[in-house]
Structure formats: C-alpha cells, structure tokens
Design a binder for these strands. Structure first.
Length: 156
DNA sequence: GGCGGAAGAC
DNA sequence: GTCTTCCGCC
C-alpha cells in the first residue's frame, strides 16, 4: 500500500495501482455479500442495461436512467423486495465520505466514481503494450476505464 | 431530487 | 462495517 493506493500484481509482467477503497482482500469479513458499488459496475458493464444505467459525460460519470429499475434489480440481488431509489440513493450518499463516489451537481441521477488515482504501474503485458490499456498518469478514456474494471472485477 | 442524522438489521 | 429504513429539511 503506497500513498492511499494498493498495488496489485496481476501477472508477473503487469502491476496495477488503484485506490484503497477498490481493494478488498478475500479474507476480509463481509466480502461474501455484494456491495452496491460492485453491483453498479456490474450493471454498467452489461450493454443490456444501457437504458437503465450507463456511462455518460465525464470519465467515471454515470447516469441512472431508470431509478426504479435499478432499485428493483438491487432489491432482487439483496433479497430486499421493498428497495426503492430513495433507499438506494441513501446508500450511494454514504459513499461520499468514503470517497468512492460523489454527486455530479446539477445533473439528475448522475454520480461519478473517484478514479483520478487509478494508474498503471510499470509496463503491461506485451500484447497490451500498444493497446488503449496503457493509461496516462491521471487520466484515461472510457474505453480504458471499462477495460481496467474488467480486471478489477476479476480481482474482487 | 438531494442531503445527512438516527436507529437498526445482519 | 455496509447497508436498510425512515424522515425532517432544503
């Protein structure tokens, strides 16, 4: 752990640094229960939910296009049949202090992941060396963002 | 809609 | 600890 980031060795040739909040050891308690931000990323990853929730605007920014449906799906996952957007959004607001999310002010149903710290350390694998996976120090486009998250989701 | 306190489930 | 539930406030 360096400067609020964890460095994870993905393979012998690739290391990734990302914020502490994105890192959870397998042995940590509660790791069996899905977390809301994992679930949000899971939906964002699937094209079939583009009309429900989608990346939009700035990098890491997403819009909940159908709040009732997102709440319904979250309720199903957590076996909470009375889940609604009012309650789900309270859970999202708890992420503000944890610096996992923040609100995009003025944009309805729009939140943003705090991913400014995410960087690739060292060189990625050879087949990745010329791919968009090679990230800039503090910025990356949406394509890189999604690819990185596929890795993070595999790790988690 | 969005915010955050308070209490409680697990 | 991570939400879930409820709610007063803006």
């Amino acid at each position: 752990s360096v400067a609020g980031c964890h460095i994870i060795k993905v393979t012998v040739a690739c290391r990734i640094a990302f914020p502490d909040w994105a890192y959870k050891p397998e042995s940590s308690p509660g790791s069996r229960q899905i977390q809301l931000w994992h679930f949000i990323l899971e939906l964002l990853q699937k094209e079939e939910y583009q009309n429900v929730i989608a990346w939009q605007g700035d990098y890491g920014e997403f819009v909940i296009k159908d709040p009732d449906e997102v709440a319904r799906l979250w309720g199903i996952r957590k076996c909470k049949p009375h889940m609604n957007y009012d309650k789900l959004s309270r859970a999202l607001r708890y992420y503000y202090n944890k610096r996992i999310l923040h609100k995009t002010k003025g944009k309805r149903f729009t939140y943003k992941f705090n991913f400014s710290k995410v960087v690739l350390v060292n060189y990625p694998l050879l087949e990745m060396a010329n791919s968009p996976f090679l990230l800039a120090q503090n910025h990356f486009n949406e394509s890189n963002f999604l690819k990185l998250f596929r890795v993070l989701l595999i790790l988690s």
